[in-house]
Computed example of a mutant assay.
Amino acid sequence: MSALKKTDIFDFTLQNGVNKSWLPLYYQVFGQPIGTAPVVLVNHALTGNSQVTGEKGWWNALIGENKIIDTELYTVIAFNIPGNGFDGNSEDLIPNYKDFTAEYIAKLFWKGLNSLGIYRLFAVIGGSLGGGIAWEMAFLQPNNIQHLIPIASDWKASDWLIANVLVQDQILNNSSNPIHDARMHAMLLYRTPESLKAKFNRTKNDNQDLFQIESWLLHHGKKLESRFELAAYKLMNHLLKTIGENMDSEQLLAFAEETTTQIHLIAVNSDYFFTADENRETFEILKKVTNQVSYNEIQSIHGHDAFLIEFEQLSGILKNIFATTKLKTILA
């Protein structure tokens, strides 16, 4: 397992003028040592962390030795969003979760990379919230990322997403069992009716007291409650609605005209969270001014969570992106 490391960020001013004299930014490095190979930054989603591969790695199917993102060929870095609780200090680090935005997390990540001597990325990849932060990183430095790969995400929060963030925020601030109850609601956004039917089909537990779907939801609520802090959940949920809040379609076009980044949009056809329709609209906007954009769609009944389920499809989409450097490395 890669050790959890820390780089210190000093004198960081947030958008609302709040100054952080010091912020610790925790991260892990996998694969090749920094400075010896192309760098792939992996941004985690709402309940994720920097453990992207190895023991308890949440993206082991994609990242590791001889995987699509091959740690024999790449330096893979993953930061923890400050306050995500992976180092156990959410409450102290983030006293007011609404001080932070996705854009300012992106700025922190760039500062963290620069502190490690990294100024250009071969790729930045992330699903859901992680993809939104990847977009924000590209907006900040349009010529320092070779491949931008947002998965089940978009460059902005839609009205639908903002509405659901509000409902989650209300549950987190008003429920007597906030993490548990918010997680149960969220699971219905991450999956689809078809997915739940295929999994449970109205079956009951052996004791016949509960339907299996009820037990499953209660289990997910309890599971997250046992490993995630309330302050962390409030922050991560809030960040979702801030994705692209300082951008509009005209600014997106201006970014596309300026950037040298190759943009790889990957949506899920059944996603209820970051919908495929929104991603298709983004693709139509971008392709008006650049040919450095592609669109792929994972076909799945499982909704938003398909980016953590449909690994065979996702690997097929990503293969050509990461094969380029693989060939160059072998030939070298």
Rank of each mutant, 00 (worst) to 15 (best):
H185S: 06
K326G: 01
S249N: 13
I213S: 02
S90L: 02
N84F: 00
L23Q: 12
Q15P: 00
E229D: 14
G126T: 08
N246Q: 10
T75R: 12
Y74L: 07
A61S: 14
L189E: 08
K197L: 12
T47I: 08
A45L: 01
S294W: 04
R120G: 13
T261C: 15
P150V: 01
N291S: 15
T7I: 15
V289P: 09
Q32C: 11
Y295N: 09
M247I: 12
I34Y: 11
L129E: 03
A78W: 13
D271Y: 02
L166W: 13
K199G: 03
S90E: 03
N19V: 14
T324K: 15
D8H: 04
R202S: 14
L314Y: 02
Q251T: 07
G88V: 05
L314Q: 05
A61E: 15
I301M: 12
P82W: 10
A152E: 06
T13Y: 00
I298N: 05
H185G: 00
A102T: 10
N174A: 08
F122M: 03
F307S: 02
A267K: 08
G127K: 06
N89T: 13
A106M: 11
T75D: 12
L224V: 07
A256K: 01
A45D: 07
P142F: 06
N80C: 12
K234M: 02
D159H: 04
K111W: 05
E278V: 08
E225R: 08
L62N: 12
I266D: 03
Q299N: 13
D70Y: 01
N80W: 09
S300A: 07
W216Q: 06
F273Q: 08
K107C: 00
N237W: 06
I118Q: 09
D11G: 01
